[in-house]
Amino acid sequence: MVHKRVVVLISGSGTNLQALIDAQNTPALPNAQIVLVFSNRKAAYGLTRASQAQIPTGYLALQPYLKANPGKTRDDYDAKVAKQVLEADPNVVVLAGWMHVFGDGFLSLMGTIPVINLHPALPGAFDGTNAIERAYDAFQRGEIEHSGAMVHRVVKDVDRGEPLVVKNVPIEKGESLDDFAARLHSVEWEIIVQATREVVDEADFRLDDN
């Protein structure tokens, strides 16, 4: 069985990346190999995690890129990232804590390669940044009883692509934001592996179909 090639994009500590690293070539994520970890932050600890796992890494940040390339735009940056991702010849691209919203340029260059994103909220709720904090605050105001996390396909509209895996996470009365966030993160580690396996299996199916 040929291993499917997975590229993971990160911006931070890389705990979701670590879940994928630990799962590859196990029953949770068989026949998958992470071939590149790419970050838009030079100090992202996820790059260290990747290096420790002997996975190639890449880095390009938006503002340094724009300063070094007068006249270039955010769209040019997106295209540059896309080209570096494509050099790794991925079957699947996973955004695992990637804190940059791509424009159409990135997705159009990906073509038919599936791109999925982990988001710490339920579909249609708390799109964009600080979703965990916003859900916790909404619970304190009595507006919601629970939040959750999802992995969805990436489309132009932020956090609005088709959900692949969705899981509710209750918020307990009296618990701290940190405690809620810790429980939610543990769910994220499960579902990012589950969703990646789904799209890897889809890639298998498409290859078998041809």
Rank of each mutant, 00 (worst) to 15 (best):
H3I: 00
V6S: 05
L9V: 00
G12E: 03
G14H: 12
I21A: 12
I21G: 12
I21C: 05
L29R: 14
L29G: 13
N31S: 14
A32N: 08
I34T: 03
L36N: 00
S39P: 00
A44C: 05
A44W: 02
A53M: 10
A53F: 03
T57A: 05
Y59K: 03
L60R: 13
L62M: 11
L62G: 11
N69H: 14
K72I: 07
D76K: 07
D78G: 07
K80P: 04
Q84A: 12
E87P: 11
A88V: 08
D89K: 15
N91H: 15
A96T: 05
V115W: 13
I116N: 10
L118H: 09
P120R: 06
A121F: 10
F126K: 00
I132Q: 14
R134M: 04
Q140Y: 01
Q140I: 12
G142K: 01
E143A: 12
I144G: 07
S147F: 11
S147E: 04
R153H: 15
R160W: 10
G161M: 00
P163Q: 02
I171R: 05
E172W: 09
E172C: 06
L177P: 02
D178G: 02
D178M: 06
F180H: 01
L184V: 07
V187H: 02
E188H: 03
E190W: 02
V193T: 11
V193A: 03
V193H: 09
A195T: 07
T196D: 01
D201Q: 15
E202Y: 15
A203S: 15
D209I: 06
